[in-house]
Design a protein around this nucleic acid. Structure first.
Length: 360
DNA sequence: AAGTGTTTTCGCGAGCGCCA
DNA sequence: TGGCGCTCGCGAAAACACTT
C-alpha cells in the first residue's frame, strides 16, 4: 500500500495555502499551547531534519491512517511507509520551491539506514532536545483524530512560513570590477566549501556570458549536483547544446581528478553519448599525472578530452570580452546565486567576499 | 524467455565545521 | 585539536518497462 505522491503534493499545497493565509492575516491558529512550545524547540533547532521529516510524517498520517509514521522505510513492516521517497518526491521539492530554508533531504542528512522514529534513535543525534520535541509532535499526530491532525499539519506549515519570513538572504549587488578584483573574487570564491557547487555555477556563468556576448544560439544547461546523471542521460555537469548538437560537455570537480575518474567518465559518458568534446574543469587541485596520461591516450584515439583550471579560464575570458562582457558575467553569476538551490552559507560567503573587495 | 534500457530505492564514504 | 554529527556527491542494486 504505497502513497500516491501526486495526492500528497496536492494535499500539501492545500494545507500550505491555509497556513499562508493565516500568517498573512495575522489570524492566530487554534492550537494547544504545549504544541506551540514543542514547535518552538523544533524550529529553534540547528538541525533542519527533524522538522522536515515531521512534515512528511504528518502528510502520511493524513493520507493513510493505517500507516505507522514511526517506520519510514517500507521494509520495516506492513504498516511502514516510504518516508524517504515521500520526502524526496514531495516534501523537499516543496520546501525548496517555496523558498523555505531546508536541507537537501533529512533521510540523507541526519536520519540514515532504516531509521525508526523511536527514543533509541536519539542516541546518535547531536540535538537531543530537538529530537525529543520531534517525537512529542509525532505522538500528538498519532493520538489526534483526522481533523486535529490536519490542524497540527497546518500549524507546522505556519511555522515554516514564519521561518522563511525570518531568513531571506539578499545578495550583495556589484556593478563592475577590475580584472584584478575579479581575480581576487574568483580566488576567494573557490576557497569556499560549497560541495562543488560554486565551480559549477562559475562555469555556467562564463559560458552563458560568452553566449550572450557573441550572440550565440547556445543553450547552456546544468543539472543539480545530486541527480544521478547516468539515469538522466546527460553527458556532464554542464552541457552546451546548439539545437540537437552537443557542442561541449563539462565535468566540474573540486576534488583532484584521478585516472579512475577519467576512465569511468570516458566509458559511461563520452562513449555512451558519443560526445565529441569533453572538458574537465577543476578548482584547486591539479589533475594527477596518470589522469592526464589517460586523457592523452583517449586523445590519440580521436577523442577531445582536456583539462582547465576554472579560475584561470574565466579570467582569460573576462579579459577578452571587455567591460561589457564582464558586466554580463556579474549579472549571470548573481542570477545563478539568487536561487533556492544555493545554500545560505554560500550566499553569505559571497556577501563577505564582495564586502572585502569593494569595501574600504 | 531473454535481453536491454530506465526508474526507484537506499546508503556509502569523504570532508566540513562545530564543540569540547 | 581531535572527535563526531551533518552534508554532499555519487552510484549500486532492485524493480520495472519495453523489445526482440
Amino acid at each position: 500500500m504505497g502513497i500516491d505522491y501526486s495526492d500528497a503534493a496536492a494535499l500539501l499545497d492545500d494545507l500550505f495555502t491555509e497556513a499562508e493565509v493565516a500568517f498573512q492575516t495575522q489570524l492566530p491558529l487554534q492550537i494547544d499551547p504545549s504544541i506551540e512550545k514543542i514547535a518552538d524547540t523544533l524550529f529553534a533547532s540547528s538541525t533542519q531534519s527533524y522538522r522536515e521529516a515531521l512534515l512528511g510524517c504528518a502528510l502520511a498520517r493524513l493520507l493513510d491512517q493505517s500507516i505507522n509514521i514511526r517506520y519510514p522505510y517500507v521494509n520495516q513492516g506492513m504498516y511502514a511507509f516510504n518516508g524517504r521517497t515521500l520526502d524526496e518526491k514531495v516534501v523537499n521539492p516543496f520546501l525548496h520551491d517555496r523558498l523555505i530554508p531546508s536541507s537537501k533531504g533529512p533521510y540523507l542528512a541526519s536520519f540514515r539506514r532504516s531509521v525508526k522514529f523511536t527514543p533509541e534513535t536519539g542516541g546518535g543525534l547531536r540535538d537531543k532536545e530537538g529530537y525529543t520535541a520531534f517525537l512529542a509532535y509525532l505522538e500528538a499526530l498519532e493520538n489526534a483524530d483526522v481533523a486535529t491532525a490536519r490542524s497540527l499539519a497546518i500549524y507546522l506549515l505556519f511555522r515554516f512560513v514564519k521561518l522563511r519570513d525570518a531568513s531571506t538572504i539578499p545578495l550583495s549587488r556589484i556593478s563592475r570590477l577590475s580584472l584584478d578584483q575579479f581575480g581576487i573574487l574568483l580566488d576567494k570564491l573557490l576557497q569556499v566549501p560549497s560541495g562543488g557547487l560554486l565551480p559549477v555555477l562559475l562555469t555556467v556563468a562564463i559560458l552563458r556570458t560568452i553566449k550572450s556576448y557573441f550572440g550565440l544560439t547556445w543553450d547552456v544547461q546544468w543539472q543539480d549536483i545530486n541527480v544521478a546523471d547516468k539515469a538522466s542521460g546527460v553527458g556532464g555537469d554542464v552541457t552546451v547544446m546548439q539545437g540537437d548538437v552537443m557542442i561541449l560537455a563539462v565535468e566540474v570537480t573540486e576534488r583532484p581528478i584521478e585516472k579512475a575518474r577519467v576512465v569511468s567518465t570516458f566509458n559511461t559518458k563520452i562513449v555512451r553519448h558519443a560526445i565529441a568534446d569533453y572538458l574537465f574543469i577543476y578548482a584547486n587541485s591539479l589533475p594527477t599525472e596518470e589522469a592526464k596520461a589517460a586523457a592523452r591516450t583517449y586523445f590519440s584515439q580521436g577523442h577531445e578530452v582536456n583539462f582547465l583550471q576554472v579560475g584561470d579560464w574565466i579570467i582569460h575570458n573576462l579579459g577578452t570580452i571587455g567591460a561589457k562582457g564582464r558586466g554580463i558575467f556579474i549579472q549571470e553569476i548573481l542570477a545563478l546565486l539568487d536561487t533556492r538551490k544555493v545554500p545560505a552559507t554560500v550566499k553569505v560567503a559571497w556577501n563577505d567576499i564582495v564586502r572585502q573587495i569593494v569595501g574600504p
